[in-house]
């Protein structure tokens, strides 16, 4: 059964010359429940915009983004925020941890805005799962980059999301940490029954996935500008 179904999804931005430039044009795309899929795409190919549309951070110009039976593209901004908080975990390349909050608070905030309420034992268990039970009250600046990404993984999965979106999650890590982080993301998604949609340009990351697709195949906007 599809967890995520996109159809006729389009997003354009105003270009410097005053016209509109289409960044994302995806006629159809789907992701099964529990599936882990990596999308291969170069920098500037619209991968982040694509993930932002799925997460409801950006509103689509047209099309639909069905997450389960709810269409993210048809919801108000407030409802999109709510659906994102309840159903989606997001892992960023730069981790995007809140610097003024401890590791535990960062993870607690990952579950604060959904309907399920804050579950402190769950947050602590997630940090223990990523090997940071001894760093609960440390601040992000007191952690190594590898550890920071592990906090980000714990935060993304804290709210038991159905879907985890990962945008170049290993882009800021060295090879060893990248391998470990990737394994951790995949394992924790599996353990929590979450689907994983990861975008990357790194062959090593992509090589770790059984299921890899070219973003250029999915995004018609890239074909339009291709020579």
């Amino acid at each position: 059964m599809s967890l995520l179904t996109l159809s006729s999804l389009r997003k354009s931005f105003v270009s410097p010359d005053g016209g509109r430039k289409v960044i994302v044009d995806v006629p159809e795309f789907s992701l099964e429940a529990g599936q882990q899929l990596a999308l291969r795409g170069e920098s500037g190919s619209g991968k982040t915009t694509f993930l932002h549309l799925i997460a409801g951070i950006l509103a689509a110009d047209a099309g639909s983004v069905l997450i389960g039976d709810r269409d993210m593209a048809k919801l108000s901004e407030h409802a999109r925020d709510r659906l994102r908080a309840e159903s989606i975990g997001y892992i960023f390349q730069t981790f995007n941890l809140l610097q003024g909050y401890s590791c535990l608070e960062n993870v607690l905030l990952g579950m604060a805005f959904g309907g399920g309420g804050v579950d402190r034992p769950r947050a602590m268990a997630m940090l223990e799962r990523v090997g940071l039970s001894h760093r609960l009250h440390h601040f992000p600046r007191q952690l190594s980059t590898g550890q920071q990404q592990r906090v980000a993984v714990a935060r993304a999965l804290a709210n038991r999301p159905k879907l985890v979106l990962a945008d170049e999650p290993t882009g800021n890590l060295d090879r060893k940490n990248a391998r470990e982080a990737l394994a951790l993301i995949r394992e924790t998604c599996r353990e929590n029954g979450a689907s994983l949609l990861l975008v990357s340009h790194d062959p090593e990351v992509l090589g770790a996935f059984e299921d890899v697709r070219d973003f250029a195949e999915i995004n018609q906007a890239l074909k339009e500008v291709a020579p």
């Binding site: 925020d81 709510r82 905030l109 990952g110 604060a112």
Partner: peptide, 15 residues
């Protein structure tokens, strides 16, 4: 940046 991160985590504008 903090506001954007909180929004990405699902915090509403009004909050």
């Amino acid at each position: 940046r903090d506001i954007a991160i909180l929004r990405a985590l699902g915090a509403g504008r009004m909050l």
